[in-house]
Amino acid sequence: MSEIVVNAVSKTWGGVGGVDRISFKADAGTLLVLLGPSGCGKSTTLRLIAGLEEVDSGTITIGGRDVTHLSPAQRNISMVFQSYALFPHLNVAENIIFGLRVRGVGRAERDTRLKKVADIVGLSNLLERKPSQLSGGQRQRVALGRAIIAEAPVCLMDEPLSNLDAKLRHEMRTEIRSLQQRLGMTMVYVTHDQTEAMTMADRVILMRDGHIEQNGAPHELYNEPASDFTARFIGTPPMNIISWQDDAVLGVRPEHVALVESDGIPATVKAVEYLGADSIVLCDVKGETVSVRQSGYCALPTGSQVALGWQNRHIHLFDRNSGKRRADSALNR
C-alpha cells in the first residue's frame, strides 16, 4: 500500500508564495483533502507531490520510497487537472489509453482495460467522441478514466470539480469518493470548497499562507477548530466570532445560538435568509454580526429587537492576537 509522507517541505519562488516547511502524512487507501483559500499553497503542495515542481528542501516519500528527486512518471501516480488537460485532437478512448500507449502496453491488454475503465466511468458509448463534443461532466469522467486506467496506487486531484455546476458537482463528489474506496487508492484532493472537503475526506488539511493551519478529521475541524481561521473557514454559515473579555474572542456556531425570551444578549435583526429546512437570522450585536440558525421558516421583521443566548459547552475561545484556540476553551463557566 502507498502512504504519502511529506516531511518539512518548502518551496518558494524568490521568497514569494509557495509553502513553508510543511509536514503531513496521507495513510494508504485514504482520501486526504488539502483545503484552503486561493494562494494558500494547496495546489503547490499537490504539484510537489506529483513532481511537477521541484522542492527547495524537505523530502517526499510514496509507499516508503523516497521520490523527492524523481520525475512525475517515476513516482507511479496519476493526476486529474482542474482543466482536465484532455488532448483535444484525440478521442475519448485515445485520451484514456494515452499513458498505456506511452508505456507500450500491448493492444489486447489496452482494449481490456479500456473497456473496464469506460464501464466504471460510464463512457462506453462515447469512446469515439472528441473532447469538444462532450459536456463538462463527461470531460471530467474522461480525465477520471485516464487517471484510473494506470492503476497507480496514488491519485492526485487538483480542484477536479470546480468547473462543474452545483448538481453535477454533488454527483461527482459521491462518485469519486466511492471510486477511491472501491479501488483502494490513496487520494490527495485539492479544493477550496469546504463542503467537498467535509463530505469526502478521511482527513482534511486546512492550509493558509503556505503553512498548515489544522490537520484532522472533518468532525475535528468542525467541532474543535484549532484557530479562529479554521472556525471561520469551516461551516456554512461560518462560526460567529465576537469580541470577548480582554485578549480573547469567542466563537459559537449559528446552530448553537438561540433566540431567548430573557437574560440574553440584546441584538437587532438585520436580515433573514430562508434556506428551506432552516433560516439564518443575521443579527447585529454592538456592530458585530452574529448569525443564528432557526429551523424552518422564520418571519422576524428587519429591525426587530431580539435576545441571543447559548450554552457554555458550545463556546470556543481564541486568543485575540495569535488566533489560536485556548486550552480552557470549552470549559464550563
Binding site: L52, P72, F81, Q82, A85, G99, V102, A150
Partner: peptide, 18 residues
C-alpha cells in the same frame, strides 16, 4: 497549447519527443 497538456503527458510518462 495549454501547459497542463504537457504536465498531464509528463505524469503519464511521455518523453519530450513523444
Amino acid at each position: 497549447i495549454p501547459p497542463e497538456l504537457k504536465e498531464a503527458a509528463e505524469v503519464e510518462g511521455a518523453g519530450r519527443w513523444y
